[in-house]
């Protein structure tokens, strides 16, 4: 068996995971490099420290390695892997909380962003995101940036679609409070007085 030259990312992931289940470390490495950036960015909504991010990614791939046999190929490899990363992050968050007593979310600030990016655009968002529970922040990233559907997010986060909707709603309402007061500079927001 060889992989055809042109296969979709989904097929490639599936083939790699079959090889991983058979104990192929090179397939695991290929899968790892294919997911690293996506997971690192996703997890940067959880912690800004690369070494913590790396630890969660590596824990995730230890689970992938150990449990590849349990994967059902009717579902998507990507939601499976991102789901493991999501749960690993939450576990690590709870473990930290137990070790250090109640930590505020301020201990898990979102990272500063690329300095070339317009500071005004993201400052309000950064402050807003810092006020959100970890689950809500990660859900926003899954939806807005990663483009996962409600159903996929429900699979990844192992909760009902209604819970995903509620998290997105509450996150949005909170963020709305941090939106800078509108001046004439933002033409895309309709005036309340109209």
């Amino acid at each position: 068996m060889t992989l055809p030259a042109k296969i979709s990312p989904k097929e490639r992931d599936s083939a790699l995971l079959v090889a991983v289940a058979a104990g192929d470390r090179r397939a695991l490495e290929e899968l790892y490099l294919g997911y690293h950036r996506r997971l690192a960015r996703f997890l940067s909504r959880f912690t800004p420290r690369y070494e913590n991010i790396e630890e969660i990614i590596n824990d995730t791939f230890m689970v992938v390695w150990q449990n590849a046999n349990d994967f059902r190929h009717a579902s998507q490899v990507s939601t499976w892997i991102i789901g493991i990363a999501y749960r690993t992050a939450l576990k690590s968050f709870r473990r930290q909380k137990n070790h250090n007593g109640e930590r505020s979310l301020e201990d898990y600030p979102v990272p500063t962003v690329d300095p070339t990016f317009d500071a005004e655009v993201h400052d309000w968002l950064k402050h807003g995101l810092n006020q959100l529970p970890v689950e809500q922040r990660l859900t926003l990233e899954l939806a807005y940036h990663m483009g996962h559907s409600l159903e996929e997010i429900a699979v990844i986060t192992e909760c009902p679609v209604g819970t995903v909707k509620a998290r997105m709603y509450h996150a949005r309402e909170k963020l709305r409070q941090y939106l800078p007061a509108l001046s004439g500079a933002s033409p895309d927001l309709p005036s309340r007085t109209e």
Binding site: L33, H36, P48, P111, H122
Partner: peptide, 22 residues
Amino acid sequence: VQNRIFEGMEAQPALDYMPVAS
């Protein structure tokens, strides 16, 4: 509002990705 949330979330985190070292 959601356009602005999306726009803000598109910013790249200042993160040094080190896939091979990791």
